[in-house]
């Protein structure tokens, strides 16, 4: 099963790089969808089916569509000004990002915990059953009921806030 991980990982990282580097912003949004789908596949490989489903529903179904709508509504600003940032700005930004990646990668590669956990983890993976949606639902209604309510409140507030912010200009003009 090793090769499937590398295929999915290459697809995810490659489409992520393309999504951040292409000029046409519509292509960026579509490649971002591929990155989200690759992440959903990685969740499936890690035996987290519910999270993979939530990823597909929320990110591919909602966030990607929202981004495409935002591109549609702000489209005309990108046609005239295709000029890019100066080379110095690009180089310094890439340097900071590379430094962040190198720091995390060094921590991962030299961590004794990551190395030590591998054998027992492999054992756990074969032993553990897939978590059922029933378990997740019971935990959500039991241990995690307060965070669930707070997230519900947050989503309601965000929904109203987004509508108010996006409609403000039109209402003021009338």
């Amino acid at each position: 099963m090793h090769w499937s991980f590398y295929v999915v990982a290459g697809l995810t990282v490659g489409s992520g790089i393309a999504a951040m580097s292409l000029r046409n912003i519509v292509h960026c949004a579509l490649l971002l969808t591929v990155t989200f789908a690759g992440l959903a596949l990685l969740y499936l490989q890690l035996n987290a089916q519910f999270v993979a489903l939530a990823q597909v529903l929320v990110y591919i179904g909602a966030v990607a569509i929202l981004i495409v709508f935002a591109i549609l509504l702000t489209r005309s600003s990108d046609i005239g000004s295709q000029s890019r940032r100066s080379l110095l700005a690009i180089a310094s930004g890439a340097l900071v990002a590379l430094a962040a990646f190198a720091t995390i990668a060094k921590a991962v590669l030299t961590s004794p915990t990551v190395k030590r956990d591998q054998p027992s983890a492999a054992l756990q993976f074969s032993v553990t059953q897939a978590t059922s949606v029933q378990d997740i639902g019971q935990q959500l209604m039991g241990n995690y009921v307060l965070p669930l309510e707070i997230v519900a409140l947050l989503l309601t507030a965000a929904l109203i806030g987004a509508a108010v912010i996006a409609l403000q200009e039109r209402r003021g003009a009338e």
Binding site: T12, G16, M20, T35, S92, A97, L98, A100
Partner: peptide, 13 residues
């Protein structure tokens, strides 16, 4: 970590 670096680079550049 690679995805984080890509996202950071995109947000900065």
């Amino acid at each position: 970590a690679a995805l984080f670096g890509i996202g950071l680079a995109g947000a900065l550049i």
